[in-house]
Every structure is written in structure tokens, then in C-alpha cells.
């Protein structure tokens, strides 16, 4: 059961799980408005005891950053938790975000506090706790905190590989804040889906950051995209005053949890993503 049918990840995950011969039912906002009163009843009616549930639905910052968005997201989680409390699922996967960590934290692993002051990070942290409180120790709960995900089909257009590729296609020019010095980790969407599929198949439990462990500056990333695209300029522009914040991850927990999982090498992942942007299906 996928809660979220049409998002960047949901559609791909649905296809991947179906290809793996799983029976998949996806519920989108058009099927059930999870934020509405009574959504729990509607959801309960569709759930069966022992189901695996992947909770992907959330209003992302590109659609709203205020308290109203926060409260809507929490209402969605409230309804989902109410349904889960009535129907004992076999496994639950909550797709959180690395936004739960403070922006100022330069080195992150799963032991770090999920205490971001941002409303979006707070929302995911609260939803994680709501899921934990609802499921207790009786149902395995996996909480995945992906960092920046890139690949064709992204709808958020946040600063990073996706925006750079769009800009390369449309403008032949990639703009950076400053010189793009900030270092970040970036995960290819196909890798995210493969990992998510493994989590579902193994009914994994626990908190895991979905990160490669290898950060790169936005500037270097932009230049890689430009090199793949060809004939694309990369230009810096003045940034707001303030410190340059980097973010590095320790991916050891992922390596230990999934010894046979290997990320697509970055250059290859960028090339594959670029093909999706340059020649959309």
C-alpha cells in the first residue's frame, strides 16, 4: 500500500514493486484526501492486516513553507496513524527527510539529534514520532531520511542537480549561488527506489539516512552537468552574506544494513539522469 501515488518517488516505486511481482495499491490525493476528517475511516477500509505500507505523502516546501502547511502535513499523519492503529499492518515505511537535521550540522549520522528548527524538518520529525508512538514495538517501522534526490520527473526543482539539468536544457546556462561552494550529498532516484524496494522486501526496521557518504560542491556538480550536457555555461552570482554551510554524511549505517547495495557511481548516475531530462519519455 503506497500512500502517495503521483509524486516523484511514488510512481517509480509502484513500477519497481510491480516489476518485482508485488501486489501494489497506490492511494493518491484524488483517492483519499489524507488531511480531511474521516480520511482514517476511508484508509482503514482499504487496509488489510499484515499489509506493508509506504507513507510518502507530504506537502513539500515548494508548495508551502508556513504553519498552515505544517498543520496540514500533521493532520495527514494523524489520519494515517489512526488507521494504522485500527489495522495491524505487517510493516510500515515512513519516507522522512534529512531536513530533520539542523542546516548548520556539517557532519551527520543517524545518532545526531533530529531537531531542525525549520517547520519542514520539524514536520518530518514529528511525523516520525507519531508513527513510532502508534506502532510501538509490535510492527516493524523503517524511517528513511533521504538527502537531495535527483533524477528525471522531479517536481520540486530545488537547488541542485535537478534544477541544473532543467536549466541546461532550457537556458544552456546554470546559475550558482556564489560560486556554488557548499558541499552536499546527492542521491540518484533509481538508487533511492532500489533501496526502498529492498527495505520493503526485507521488512527492515530502524532509522536510516539515504545518503552516499560522498559530498560534492554545487559548483562541481554544476560543472559535471554542464560537461555531460555540452555547450552549457556555469556562472556564479553574488550570494547573500553569511557563512557557507557544508553538509557531509556518514553512510556507514546504510553500508552495514545493506552490504550488497551499491550506489550508482555519481558520473554514471548524472549521465543517466541527464538522458531523462534531455529526452523525456
Amino acid at each position: 500500500m503506497l500512500l502517495g501515488a503521483h509524486g516523484f518517488l511514488a510512481a517509480r516505486l509502484r513500477t519497481a514493486l510491480q516489476d518485482a511481482r508485488m501486489s501494489v495499491h497506490a492511494i493518491g490525493a484524488r483517492d483519499i484526501d489524507l488531511a480531511a476528517a474521516g480520511a482514517a475511516d476511508a484508509l482503514q477500509a482499504q487496509l488489510k492486516e499484515g499489509d506493508s505500507i509506504v507513507f510518502l505523502s507530504a506537502i513539500t516546501p515548494d508548495k508551502g513553507k508556513g504553519i498552515d502547511t505544517l498543520m496540514t502535513n500533521l493532520r495527514m499523519a494523524e489520519q494515517v496513524c489512526a488507521a494504522l492503529a485500527r489495522v495491524r499492518p505487517g510493516h510500515v515505511v515512513y519516507i522522512s527527510s534529512d531536513a530533520v537535521y539542523r542546516d548548520t550540522e556539517p557532519f551527520i549520522d543517524e545518532l545526531g539529534p533530529a531537531d531542525s528548527p525549520s517547520l519542514y524538518g520539524t514536520m518530518h520529525a514529528l511525523r516520525e514520532r507519531m508513527m513510532m508512538a502508534t506502532l510501538g514495538s509490535g510492527t516493524p517501522l523503517a524511517i528513511l531520511r533521504p538527502t537531495l534526490i535527483f533524477g528525471p520527473g522531479d517536481t520540486h526543482n530545488s537547488y541542485g542537480a535537478n534544477r541544473f539539468m532543467r536549466a541546461a536544457v532550457t537556458d544552456r546556462r546554470i546559475s550558482l549561488f556564489g560560486e556554488g561552494e557548499e558541499q552536499r550529498d546527492h542521491v540518484f532516484v533509481d538508487d533511492m527506489i532500489r533501496l526502498l524496494q529492498a527495505v520493503v522486501e526485507r521488512r527492515s526496521a530502524g532509522v536510516l539516512n539515504v545518503v552516499t557518504g560522498q559530498s560534492i560542491s554545487f559548483g562541481d556538480l554544476a560543472r559535471k552537468v554542464a560537461a555531460i550536457a555540452g555547450d552549457v555555461a556555469v556562472e556564479g552570482k553574488p550570494r547573500a552574506a553569511g557563512p557557507i554551510l557544508h553538509r557531509h554524511y556518514d553512510a556507514t549505517a546504510l553500508f552495514r544494513s545493506f552490504p550488497d547495495f551499491q550506489f550508482t557511481p555519481r558520473d554514471e548516475a548524472l549521465a543517466r539522469a541527464w538522458r531523462g531530462y534531455a529526452q523525456p519519455a
Binding site: 560522498q214 553512510a251 556507514t252 557511481p265
Partner: peptide, 24 residues
Amino acid sequence: RINSTYRRDWALRLLRSDVFERIP
């Protein structure tokens, strides 16, 4: 303790970053 566990896995991270990408 955190640093000890982190450094214990030095070779694992190295294999992941410098070897397995080239030779899966």
C-alpha cells in the same frame, strides 16, 4: 565511543568509496 565506532569502519567506507564503485 562514537569516534571509535566511526574509525572502526574506516576500511568499509574506503572500500565503498574507492573500490566497489570501480569493481562492484
